[in-house]
Design a protein around this nucleic acid. Sequence first.
DNA 1: AAGATATAATTGGTATACAATTTTTTAGAC
DNA 2: GTCTAAAAAATTGTATACCAATTATATCTT
Lengths: 223, 223
Amino acid sequence: MQSKWVEEDLLSIRERAYRYLKDMILNGEYKAGDRLVERELADKLHISRTPIREALFRLESQGFVKTVPRKGVVVERISEDEVVEVFTILSSLEVLAAKLAAQKMDDKTQLEFDQVIVKLQNLDGLTEAEVSKLHLDTNQILHKAAKSPKLYELLTGLTDYIRIFSNTSYETPGRKEESMKEHLEIMKAVRNKDVEMGEYLTKIHIENSKRAYINYVKQNKKG
Amino acid sequence: MQSKWVEEDLLSIRERAYRYLKDMILNGEYKAGDRLVERELADKLHISRTPIREALFRLESQGFVKTVPRKGVVVERISEDEVVEVFTILSSLEVLAAKLAAQKMDDKTQLEFDQVIVKLQNLDGLTEAEVSKLHLDTNQILHKAAKSPKLYELLTGLTDYIRIFSNTSYETPGRKEESMKEHLEIMKAVRNKDVEMGEYLTKIHIENSKRAYINYVKQNKKG
DNA sequence: AAGATATAATTGGTATACAATTTTTTAGAC
DNA sequence: GTCTAAAAAATTGTATACCAATTATATCTT
């Protein structure tokens, strides 16, 4: 799935370059250790070095790439410890988001939730990609429902950061189905303004995801 | 207190520009609404537009300034709601940090804590600036003790973001003294690996800070 | 094959130019 | 004097060219 460069003419060139590069990294097309050469990218995208540099700076400030002075820009290798760290942080922030979302639940948001809940109850026949997208969408709606832009921003950054790895944890047989089921229960609790249940289920959900990731890594290290 | 531009020749020009501008904003010398003109800054610091732009982008991604295309870069006005939001998020993350710090406490870190604890027990004769610095240092040591670089990064970003405002909440009579005392108790609990006490005291501390801020704002709106 | 040396490549920064747009100034009308 | 409209200036976004410092790579020597 090659990310598309063109389209969206309204955006600035640097914004398009940023999104393109971030997509490529998040989708694993640029892998850890890959070098990103300004000149090459500029030629490839038919733009000058300037917006490329600006996009790279932004990616660097978000931890996706690292610039080694006068050597090159390389895609960062995210360590297992770091992923576990992020899961730990997410545990706190997602619980907070669930709490806020349940507290601030209103009619309009309930309608949004209901739509997602229906989808989560009928996963049969969905492709892997569709399930993945539904997972991301569910998260997004949940995070937005907390009605705290700052929190949303943090959650987006953190989930993006470990996106590739949280996908790998789905390799554990049955984990993906379990995860979607947990998501469904969380959505129902939050939708019904059950603050404590929402917090509790979210905590369990992230802990399970974290454990699945750790087990997956352990498994694939030995054999 | 005009931030110094020169010195630290080892750092890249863009890094120095970034720190200079961030200092100026955090110390309130550039206020909300002020325009930051690339050309002016470049002339003032005797560098070209390039590193200035790079510094501005970084500040923008952290929410300190906002670029309006072909219009200018202005220092962002941080709303009261946003400050409250950040306090809420900090409550979760600081509690997590206290927990991790208590769990991972080791001999070396205990020595660092002991030094700070001694200072916190003898505030007499310290100037306002010295007390402020001690407050920041205490936070930093606490955050570092969680031994989670990602968490440290998030906490630094958030506390920086509301730095000016958390200072204003100290205007409430007695709040600063109370805050320092709370800090002292947190440090003692965490130092002694008392996880639950550390979490509890931290929660109370942030809640108090948040309440002090809200009250201060309310007070100064009416009168 | 190994090591030394020369050459390429790459980023960091400067400088200049120009288009698109916004802000400010100016000129004019009344 | 004040309002309006046109002109001028200012500002960012992008491109291009250039060079220094450093690193990667290729070449040569032994």
